[in-house]
């Protein structure tokens, strides 16, 4: 058992690796790990309600806490109201808090 912070920065519609990263987050959570998936830069495009299915919903269903960087959303003109249910708006300081949390989570940046 351990805590994981997975940071995805790539657009899942450009990088085939990104959906696999979301799946990794879901797989870890399904094994009982505490997993935070922080989306930044173009990865936030995955959280739009109208976006094609990209494994984010499955990760949420499997217990992953999904956070989307509000700065990245604003840069791309994605309104907070456009994000799908289960995705929490976050600031970059929230990512620092997650990374520096007690228990020293394992951080993977993609």
């Amino acid at each position: 058992m351990g805590d994981y912070v997975l940071v995805e920065s790539r657009d899942p519609f450009e990088s085939g690796d990104a959906p696999y990263f979301f799946k990794l987050a879901g797989d870890l959570a399904a094994r009982g790990e505490k997993v935070t998936l922080f989306l930044v830069q173009n990865a936030v495009l995955a959280v739009r309600k109208g976006a094609k299915e990209n494994s984010i919903a499955a990760a949420i269903d499997r217990g992953v806490e999904v956070m989307a960087d509000s700065f990245s959303l604003r840069e791309r003109g994605v309104l907070a109201t456009e994000r799908r249910a289960g995705v929490r708006l976050a600031e970059i300081g929230d990512l620092v808090d997650q990374m520096m949390a007690d228990g020293v989570p394992k951080v993977l940046w993609h």
Partner: peptide
């Protein structure tokens, strides 16, 4: 890339938190 900006935002936030 946007990564440089993100890295600097993380550093900025950490310093502001006294890290």
């Amino acid at each position: 890339t946007a990564t440089s900006t993100t890295a600097m935002r993380v550093i900025d936030a950490a310093l502001r938190k006294g890290i």
